[in-house]
Amino acid sequence: MTPFGAAGDIAEQTAPTLAGPPSPPRGLPALKLFQHIRAPEIPYYLGWLNYWSDAAARAIGFPDPARDADLLSRARRTATGGWVVQLTDAPLDLDNPAHLDALRRAYERFPEIGGRAPLR
């Protein structure tokens, strides 16, 4: 496990299979390869620690105080207007059901991440 999340699981989220499109593990969403994400400010994937520039945060709609209270409790604004957002208190462990649930919820909250939704 890397400090930025489960690198193997992230690779599996985008890896094509012999049958065709990606077959994501553990109910995580299929992500587009970074070269197929049409806006450079859109994050490629989520990890335990996430840096979102001001432009990236605006593109994904973060923060929304009504929907992001949990994330905001573990987020810090940078001097340049970006955000460092920590998904869980401890490094992501996808064998921990609470961590996997937090990651799934974050992907549901931010469909733009990984190029899964059109830009706003």
Rank of each mutant, 00 (worst) to 15 (best):
R38C: 07
P63A: 00
R104S: 15
A11H: 08
A75N: 03
N96W: 11
H99E: 03
A79K: 11
P43F: 02
A79P: 06
H99M: 10
A19S: 13
A30T: 05
A59C: 07
I113K: 00
A7V: 06
V84M: 13
A55G: 06
L28P: 01
Y45F: 13
N50A: 04
I37A: 07
P3A: 14
L87E: 06
Y45H: 11
V85N: 06
N96Q: 13
L28S: 02
N50F: 04
P97I: 11
R26G: 04
A102V: 12
T80R: 12
G8I: 09
F62I: 03
V84E: 14
A66W: 08
G20P: 07
E108R: 13
R109V: 12
D101H: 12
L103A: 09
L87Y: 08
F34L: 02
L71Y: 04
N96M: 10
P111T: 06
R109Q: 10
A55S: 05
P22I: 00
F4C: 07
I37T: 05
I60R: 00
L103M: 11
N96K: 08
D9C: 11
D93G: 13
E112T: 09
L100S: 10
L33H: 13
R104N: 07
G81C: 12
Y107P: 08
R74S: 02
P43W: 01
A15T: 15
A90M: 13
T78N: 07
E108S: 11
A19M: 13
G20R: 00
R105D: 15
D64G: 02
F62Y: 04
W52K: 03
P16G: 05
L100I: 14
L119G: 09
G20C: 09
H99I: 13
L18C: 06
T14I: 15
R120E: 11
P25T: 04
R109K: 12
K32E: 12
D95I: 04
W52H: 00
T14H: 10
P65F: 00
I113S: 09
E108N: 13
L46Y: 01
I42M: 00
L71P: 00
F110L: 13
I42W: 00
G81W: 05
T14A: 10
G27Q: 01
L71R: 01
Q13T: 08
R104A: 11
Y51H: 10
P21I: 04
P40C: 10
L72S: 04
A7E: 13
F34I: 08
I10W: 13
P118E: 14
R105Q: 14
R74N: 00
D9A: 15
G114A: 00
S73L: 03
G47C: 02
L72Y: 01
P111G: 05
I113Y: 07
L103G: 01
P91G: 06
A106C: 10
P16S: 09
A39C: 06
D64N: 09
Y44R: 05
P16H: 08
A56L: 05
A19C: 06
P24F: 05
G5Q: 05
R74C: 02
H99C: 12
R116V: 11
D101R: 12
W52L: 14
P3T: 14
A59L: 05
G82A: 13
T88P: 08
P16C: 10
V84A: 07
L103V: 14
R105G: 07
A117H: 06
A117N: 05
L46I: 02
E112V: 15
K32T: 05
G81D: 06
